[in-house]
Design a protein around this nucleic acid. Structure first.
Lengths: 256, 256
DNA sequence: CGCGATTTGTGCACGTCTTCACAAGCGCCT
DNA sequence: AGGCGCTTGTGAAGACGTGCACAAATCGCG
């Protein structure tokens, strides 16, 4: 409770509370903890041990404690963490104390779904505007929002500050949209288009590619199959192999 | 080439060519390389250097070379990689030589979009069946497929082998669906529901949470803002802070 | 008031991933 | 045929992330 100054981090009094720069891996897990904490709060828990929370979030308890310690969190030894307080802290660190405005570009198949996705609103975001380049889509109303032409982006951005841009266009259009977003001052982009975006330094891009996830699973599926493979059947997968590949007697890659 | 026995991996003669067990990080990048390679092939390139390919895929060239070396790939020094051959190799390793069947459970907002997403079909997957628990949705036709009740899963799975299950249900239903998928022999699951799934060993689960991506971006946004923050304005972000948090005077993070 | 049960916070060791830098190999040109 | 420039493949070092195991701290109870 005491207002005392923290040792360890020297000087520089009175500045913004200033986020400790967390390891990326930790940042990526915080939202997961947050979701678990909300569940626990709804279930009536006032405190939770690292063991319990880590189970809820599906991670190792030591990892969780280390993550929380990075943000200077106050747990109580012998008791655990105060659920409500921890929620506040994580939401603060993640910058969720203000409801951030999201602009969604591309209201095709996927964009349509994103525009209607409850998960955004319920977790601190507000879809502020929808855009598309296709004139026939402009004017359409989705979930109470009217689709505007992507060229109106500057006008909309001038009216309300857009924190995050979401790109749900086909790949060929994505780079141009990204440039437009950057031009109006957006510094965080979530890209659903299957392509790499080049953006100036200082702009963060995260990419979600649904097909890639499937391909990763496919690899493991393939791998499991090749391990289980009955030696007798000899080449179920092999037959599918194009001729050229047969030469790849991949040999042993330094093993172990 | 020589048929010689492989050292390192003992016994188990005559087995499938056997995937080298790649580092997870490498596996996650292979699909990205594959996409870049397809683009290059379409553009008429016959060979490509690691430098060129890595630029297309948005990674470091040394990393790319090491990744490719893991799968025993044959590049040619002084020339580069044969685009067509590399595509074949990566597709083989990822198990994309056979078009895998995907079962999609939950045709709500997101599921609907996934069912209509071209990216799956164009990259080696085939949506084999759609399911939902809501009787009012059963029978609906999406993209040429009829939505069936999730309880029909065993019947469908008996007819054709499902390689991957995709869960696009609300969180409360996800675990039950996962259990049902596992029960019919699915060993790879892509989960879009915001919750952790518990599955038996040997089953792979990958999770995609759209809100989490936004929250990660939000953190960086918040961080950038706190660094740029004019010291004079004193507390744009601070004012939003709930009382209890004020104690976290974590101060300036080592800067740089 | 002191003790034991409980749980956090963290030092340390280990494994994985990344990056640099360079030798080895290949093709082309003279 | 020989040399030169280019590109791959990889050793080694460093950064990063993970998980164990334990000391330090707190609470509740007798």
């Amino acid at each position: 409770m005491s207002q005392h100054r923290q040792p360890g981090v020297p000087g520089r009094a009175g500045a913004v509370p200033a986020l400790p720069d967390l390891p990326e891996a930790t940042v990526a897990r915080l939202p997961e903890y947050l979701r678990a904490l909300h569940n626990l709060a709804d279930a009536g828990h006032e405190t939770i041990s690292s063991e319990g929370l880590s189970a809820s979030a599906g991670v190792n308890s030591a990892k969780l404690r280390k993550d929380l310690s990075h943000l200077g969190s106050y747990g109580t030894r012998g008791v655990g963490y105060d659920v409500a307080l921890l929620i506040e802290q994580i939401e603060y660190v993640l910058g969720l104390t203000q409801r951030r405005a999201v602009a969604l570009v591309g209201v095709g198949n996927l964009g349509h779904a994103l525009a209607g996705y409850d998960g955004f609103a319920s977790r601190g975001f507000r879809i502020a505007a929808l855009f598309d380049a296709d004139p026939s889509r402009v004017g359409e109303e989705i979930n109470g929002l009217v689709v505007r032409h992507v060229d109106d982006l500057p006008a909309v951005a001038a009216q309300e500050s857009i924190a995050i841009g979401v790109i749900a266009t086909p790949a060929p259009a994505a780079q141009r949209v990204a440039d437009q977003l950057v031009a109006v001052g957006v510094t965080s982009i979530l890209n659903f288009a299957p392509c790499v975006l080049s953006v100036p330094e200082g702009v963060d891009v995260r990419k979600v590619d649904l097909a890639i996830e499937l391909q990763i699973l496919s690899f493991h599926e393939h791998r499991k199959a090749s391990l289980t493979a009955l030696p007798a059947t000899g080449g179920s997968a092999l037959t599918a192999l194009p001729g050229g590949l047969a030469a790849t007697d991949t040999q042993e890659a330094i093993g172990t």
